[in-house]
Nucleic acid binder design. Structure first.
Lengths: 362, 362
DNA sequence: AGGTAGCGTGGGAGCGCTCCCACTGCGATG
DNA sequence: CATCGCAGTGGGAGCGCTCCCACGCTACCT
């Protein structure tokens, strides 16, 4: 890519020292230029930069990490066996956001799997060894020990999907409450009144918030009766919940499912019961996944700004870590349309707006 | 997690030297134990291991990388803007395979995005700096300069989805030819004779191979006429191709689409034309994605063993890099049911079997 | 008996950086 | 005119490891 220039001896890649020799300055000065210190005269800086370009110098990360005692790396911890959030399109979209935000940075992204006990063991070692500056946590269970471990080791972390309203880590979330509420209000505006909700697993905070949104929307509209049935985010769970609802409330006219996958399960049961969508029962999902777009009929669903959430996670982690973060400026403010609160321990919590995507199922 | 033990002075984490002192041996001996050298007596080894456990010693990666001139890291390069392969469920499944295989290893996984020019520039620097032992490449275009760069820098690499039959990098692929052939043979066995194929972008080698499989299956069955139309892996492309096919061959009785997404597009056009699936026209897709399972009717599709492909990539990369790779044994043989060939430059090419998942669309 | 393999071991050198202290030279100050 | 402050710079020390040479010792050879 870049010219190689004359590389005197030492077959390997050029070192700081060689750059210094070439530019006719000392090691310290080259280091200052490389790291953007202001305490260098313009002429010297230019000379060093020329030498860097001529030699194709690239700093040795290991040496830098060793000397400076920092790693310039952050980890994204992937709870592998957990299907729901690792599933599509959640994961790759989030990664996209993380990646794009990281591009302005010197940080490298480490992917760490924490599925098996063995992997979790390794992860704990990683963290104990302070091999990363910070950690990105995705979809952690309420009873996971990892957040506490991070707190104990004093490692900056951001969690996507806070575990509760009192989340002790910095967090990024989508507005589950508002998303649910908008879905239900949409159904109300379509004239539906007997609206059921198939919830996600209620040990997931986001699922609780969706229930809250559902309840408040109905309450605000003066609808008294809540038609609730617990699902578990799976298709089979959606089927079971729908069957239960149908037998208890055969006159329901709308279903708001806590996920598209559960909506798909519900749809099957509705079909088998001879109910038409949306003529007899309107159906709304959550996630706006590929399933929603390709369902028959296409499913109205709540879209979460997942890529933005990935970006926001980096923003918050940046704030948690503090310091320079390479080239980037002050790290950019919160994502537009998001709400930021500061909780216990001074950690920030960012909640991003959702969007209802209306299709033919409602 | 582990007991902290008495950490004499030096607030930081214990070093090799401290372990050596504690065990009453020299630095070199501790290093040998840590790295599993056989040239250590059992008693000494035990003493060192005890000291390691007591102090909670974890080697400093940076120091090790600097001294040994290796990084113990591999990179997964993600061509971000390229939608097709980053999309579902491809990416996360592959990651799962990579992760599970990597769990037996000391290697860490670096995720590098190569979407923007800026990112590619950074990637080139990364590679030039030899910051990774090897590279995993996913879905690279035929004209991408990256593989040549890797070859020039002599960096071990494995590509998923070879660019041609003469791929110069080690590669992992699913059996596109066999998969297509089984799909078409399935349609033939259902009595269909006028079978069309909506291809993917033909600059993608895998898409070409699917065409080959389609052609050979028909030829073997004595069917002369090929009904081919080029798509581009998108839903809109599937629609266009289906329209074209329908106007040219209104009597076709089956469609084999080169991807589920294109099948979804084709399905819309078929529906609009008043054709029933599968009564009038049978439909088969490729990828066995979430779309296939949730389509109406559920779509017969060719499943690729993507997770296994991820695993296989690590296996091949291991072979390319050579050396120890941490704890793992000889790196495991090829995945069961796969075919391994050795091509130019001694690089291995592994092709994994596909599986036809029959559903109601055919 | 002396010679000589090796094994198991200790520790010096050095990987390429950053940090920081010391030094120079200059203009501002008393 | 001596003194100070400070921007700009050079280079020593050291980060925690691996590599490798040298050393003592035991067992076996001649």
């Amino acid at each position: 890519m870049t010219g190689q220039g004359a590389r005197s001896r030492s077959a390997g890649r050029p070192t700081l020292e060689e750059v210094a020799a070439r530019a006719g300055v000392g090691r310290g000065t080259v280091s200052r230029v490389i790291n953007g210190s202001p305490r260098v005269s313009d002429s010297t800086r230019a000379a060093v930069e020329a030498a860097v370009a001529e030699l194709g110098y690239v700093p040795n990360t290991a040496a830098r990490a060793l000397a400076a005692n920092r790693t310039d790396a952050i980890a994204l911890v992937v709870p592998e066996p957990e299907t729901r959030f690792f599933a599509e399109p959640y994961f790759s979209d989030m990664l996209r956001g993380v990646g794009s935000e990281l591009a302005d940075t010197e940080m490298q992204l480490l992917l760490i799997f924490a599925g098996s006990d063995r992997e979790r063991q390794r992860l704990a070692q990683y963290l104990a060894a302070h091999r990363v500056e910070g950690v990105l946590l995705v979809s952690v269970h309420a009873d996971d020990p990892l957040p506490d471990l991070l707190a104990a080791l004093d490692i900056p972390a951001v969690i996507s999907g806070p575990r509760s309203a009192e989340e002790t880590l910095a967090s990024v979330d989508s507005d589950n409450y508002g998303g649910a509420r908008s879905a239900v209000e949409h159904l109300l505006s379509r004239g539906r009144r007997r609206i059921a909700h198939i919830t996600g697993r209620l040990d997931v905070y986001g699922a609780q918030r969706r229930v809250d949104g559902y309840r408040d929307a109905l309450e605000a509209a003066g609808v008294r009766e809540l038609l609730l049935e617990q699902g578990d985010f799976t298709e089979e769970g959606g089927r079971r919940a729908m069957s239960a609802l149908l037998s208890r409330h055969p006159d329901l006219d709308a279903v708001f499912a806590g996920s598209d996958v559960m909506a798909a399960g519900a749809r099957q049961v509705l079909r088998e019961a001879g109910l038409r969508i949306p003529a007899d029962v309107a159906l709304v999902g959550y996630d706006d996944s590929a399933i929603a777009r390709h369902m028959e009929p296409p499913l109205t669903s709540v879209r979460q700004p997942i890529e933005s959430m990935g970006r926001a996670m980096i923003g918050l982690l940046q704030a948690e870590i503090g310091g320079e973060w390479g080239a980037g400026g002050p790290g950019g403010g919160p994502t537009s349309g998001s709400v930021v609160a500061v909780g216990a321990g001074g950690h920030r919590h960012e909640v991003l707006r959702t969007e209802l995507v209306v299709r033919e199922s409602s």
